[in-house]
Design a protein around this nucleic acid. Sequence first.
DNA 1: ATAAATTACTAAATCGTTTTAGTTTATCTT
DNA 2: AAGATAAACTAAAACGATTTAGTAATTTAT
Lengths: 341, 341
Amino acid sequence: MRPSLKQIANALNLSTAAVSKALNDYPDISLATKKIVKSYVKKVGYKANIQATYLRTQKTMTIGVILPDITNHFFLEILKGIMTQANKNKYTIILGHSKESEAEEKKLIYQFLQQKVDGILMSLAQDTSRFEHLNKVINNKTILVLFDKLARTINCSKVFVDDKKGGFKATQHLIKKGCTKIAHFRGDLNPQNSIDRYLGYREALSFHEIKFDPNKVLISRKGSVKEGYLLAKKLYESGIKIDGLFCVTDMVALGAIRFFKERKINVPNDICVIGFSKTMVGKFVNPSLSTVDQKASKMGKMAMKLFLSEEKILKTEKRLENQSLQLNTKLIKRESTSKVS
Amino acid sequence: MRPSLKQIANALNLSTAAVSKALNDYPDISLATKKIVKSYVKKVGYKANIQATYLRTQKTMTIGVILPDITNHFFLEILKGIMTQANKNKYTIILGHSKESEAEEKKLIYQFLQQKVDGILMSLAQDTSRFEHLNKVINNKTILVLFDKLARTINCSKVFVDDKKGGFKATQHLIKKGCTKIAHFRGDLNPQNSIDRYLGYREALSFHEIKFDPNKVLISRKGSVKEGYLLAKKLYESGIKIDGLFCVTDMVALGAIRFFKERKINVPNDICVIGFSKTMVGKFVNPSLSTVDQKASKMGKMAMKLFLSEEKILKTEKRLENQSLQLNTKLIKRESTSKVS
DNA sequence: ATAAATTACTAAATCGTTTTAGTTTATCTT
DNA sequence: AAGATAAACTAAAACGATTTAGTAATTTAT
């Protein structure tokens, strides 16, 4: 059993107050006593009980992370970034999985608030359209940092990728490969990401003076492989001819490629395909998948850093101050767009 | 701000004791009072402060999970299983990432013990060869459940896959496809899993009266794609001819396949390849990869259930009682072994 | 009608820290 | 040498719950 402060104090013939102060480097404890206390504490392996400490300090050194999809490699890279940064700063991560559901997300937030986390870092669920639960976090004076999938209107720190520029890069890459009839399988109408990627697509078209054709834009609600397959089928059967395809996620792109393969349509020679997100899989498939890297790990790192800087400000100024961080994407060229134009 | 017990008590003209007892259904509080308290508490949204509760009950309703590799799909499926089960039982998960390092693993365990988790569910790091940190968990009267990568000698609950039978199934599948010269890229010498898969390989060979050839067994230390590629190259350049290959992980198998593709060796017609673990990728590559499914999600679920049952026993009998659970694997037949024999 | 038992509470201690407000002892002024 | 200052502590309250022991009021037993 770990010793308590009281036991340490008894053993050293000091008051608990003196021991506590010595450990927290209060100026009214002599250097000699501090040395004695610290060396003894080290010897017996004493560590302050976090729960007891919380009762006075209101700090748990714990942050809650909510991911919409725990089996998605992208989010795990983010999580890795967060954890590395968190550990460096002695924070513990408690993990929540919203399963892309607003209801789950809400539950998790309430759970985390009850657990008295010092902050919540999260990406919104696909589902999420109302934001009272997020405002509750802020009103609770708990630091909130949104990453990737977020809502612009929430007054908190944010890290996100420049999706519009990413969409632009992806589309422009297809254009440079000589594609002129470029379709887009966009995400759901709601989340900002899919809107921005779509806008980037449109901007690239107009920048290169290619006429926009609304019939070439289909919506993928869940972003799954299966949906990609079905959308490709739908487009194919509608008779619309394309030579390039930009998909809102790698998974959708993989589904589309699978369909094209079935119909003996060659990727990239007949149709160039590019995804978005740089999931693990894309590297191993055949043809390997071109994509837009969102720098997931950096995003996680930055989310945690935003938390830490807010925390610092909060300690001194007692008010929340937030900032937005926009990260750049990187085009990853692979076989699925390796046509010589 | 959430109200405290005291505030509730004041509002209802009761003592804090009465309110606390009412909420915890003590028999010495009248039904009428309980009703009043509960409905009021619901109205104002009171939730007991977990940290304060801990101080008396020693229960945090938190369990620590340590994964060796957070970007490995297999572990994430396990985590998903654990989390689903945990949430059902009002437990919170705190997550640790050992990065396959014993030192990190040790640190995490000490951190979790300090956090006073009610239990630790973990898979050992590749690295781990000494076990004092695990024994410290047990001596601390904290429930320990090991899953997947574990040490037989530790006296705690365990969930693992019947790797030997899995290795047997994989190898037998190759044999049934007509392969007679079957190589095995095994894992490191240490962990039980790779030993068992190797033993299953040997058993299948001898069961089907195929002579074992030690030259056909190579060791992959890290289980990476790159290593798989290099081992395949090494085997190929050594001049040893094979028509079947069983790899300790899907990643190693993918690396090997990549090499065979480069040399225009057809998979499955020239060489059948099978992996182990059912990672996401295997389904999407070309040829799609046959593998042995470890039922990761079930493993997570079971690990959590073992924890819960130990917890229950501990509450009534004040002693740890552990059990081992061995799960069966499932052969997943895909293109990489789809030769007609 | 009185004692015993039961019911439905309350007071106060407790968990392990931190922190405010003293208190003692030694040191410095003048 | 007396008072002021500073140094180095201690006592006790506080955080927010739970729980043991005790108590008043009511009911039951005889």
